[in-house]
Design a protein around this nucleic acid. Structure first.
Lengths: 241, 241
DNA sequence: GACCTTATGCCAACGCCATTGACCAGGACA
DNA sequence: TGTCCTGGTCAATGGCGTTGGCATAAGGTC
């Protein structure tokens, strides 16, 4: 039993598996991502992963403390991908918007993985780099540090929170997802005006609106509000109760 | 095997269980809620639920199609509670803020349940009532229907998304949660200024800020932005890519 | 190239889990 | 009182994560 997992950087002996595969943290993470895509967010199991890797399931525990540890590593991979090839333009609103959309898009590219990881904090390298980048954009925009931290907090949580939410519906198996959309059409569009006047009045708009993500609009509202505060010299909203 | 679950309203024979308990949908939902609190978000299992109810585990399938169906019912219970005792004041900003905070608070009162339910759409009665209430507030505020729908979408998704995100950290078992916070202190506060200047400069603020929810501030920013649009006559932000 | 250490892969087993089909007790209603 | 069928129980199936013990070959040293 693996009392302690060996850190990837200190790994020396890369013994091939019975079926000839050579394992590594990254190889396992990428395989996990593929399995999540193919089998859904419930479909990542140690046994299946072992099968896909050509290794005994228990071998995983030489690389990760358990399933949960692996999931965090998968999440960090997604954050890392969001920043691939990004460079700051110098205009903070443009940069913030681009970063938000990149994070959101990166998670939604792997909805089944995003469901498991988007609400987790790992403290892994890519995550830290992302935080530094956002704080840097706000600093250059001229926000005092206290305001920058508050806006940063709203920004990063909003991005992750919407990623998790939007991923959840994308990650549903096709059948369930169509059922969900059918619920919107069938349930909401059919509510009588007498009991649900606002829904009835908005039914057409709702069906169209609810099939796309609200994140871009919500992000723009956040940036708008921050910009107004920066211009007017007021502090950003504090936190209520 | 229960090919079809009998609707609660059509249930007639309430046969007591071997151990004398009388079951109902709501009783099961409330028990599930209690078990989630006591055993964590992974701790809701059919077997344990049966034990807690004083019934055979398989009995659950007479009331819900499966675990997933039960989870949706638990979620609707939480939405319902958010609206308990709420009445509109007529001031749309006040009302919207109150509703957002109520939803957020209701989910966070049961973090382990919120993790499972906050990103799910059920189409159940309480959920529909909530949608009607929000649309009604926006309508009375004077937003044209298209704008109202877009703001409603941002509002409801942001509330649920933050609820899910914040619940996730609250729902961690005490040990893991302290480890998470320790990561913040240890990892972030210790990053050298040379490689992570912005994090280093903001370290003190970060440690304080990251332990509370960003939702109230994010909500205020959303309302601010909507108010500016209403005043200025501009439409709210559309959706980008 | 031989030897030693030990990292790393494999095996078997444990105790969970959700779900199902067959069965039957007993409440509802005629 | 007799019939029907809801809503309980029981037993079984095939999965799951995780662990302890073991075997073996990789890498370092001489």
């Amino acid at each position: 039993m693996p009392k302690r997992v060996v850190a990837e950087s200190e790994r020396r002996r890369r013994r091939p598996t019975k079926q000839g595969a050579v394992l590594s943290e990254r190889h396992i993470v990428l395989t996990a991502l593929r399995m999540l895509r193919e089998h859904g967010s419930q479909g990542l199991t140690v046994r299946r992963l072992g099968l896909a890797l050509g290794a005994d399931p228990s071998t995983l525990y030489r690389y990760f403390r358990g399933m949960d540890d692996l999931v965090l590593a998968v999440g960090d991979e997604l954050i890392g991908r969001a920043f691939d090839g990004w460079t700051a333009t110098g205009d903070w609103q443009t940069d913030l918007r681009a970063l938000g959309l990149r994070i959101h898009r990166s998670y939604l590219a792997h909805p089944q993985a995003a469901v498991l990881t988007a609400s987790r904090v790992s403290g892994r390298p890519h995550e830290i780099a992302a935080d530094e980048a956002v704080l840097d954009v706000l600093h250059r925009a001229g926000f005092p540090v206290a305001d920058a931290v508050r806006i940063y907090h709203c920004f990063i949580d909003q991005a992750l929170a919407f990623a998790a939410l939007d991923a959840a519906s994308l990650a549903l198996p096709a059948a369930a997802r169509e059922a969900d959309e059918a619920v919107w059409q069938a349930t909401y569009a059919r509510l009588p005006e007498s009991t649900h006047p606002r829904i009835a009045a908005a039914a057409g708009h709702l069906v169209a609106e609810m099939n796309v993500s609200a994140y871009p609009a919500a992000l723009d509202m956040l940036i708008d509000s921050a910009a107004a505060r920066l211009g007017g010299g007021e502090p950003p909203p504090g936190r209520a109760a």
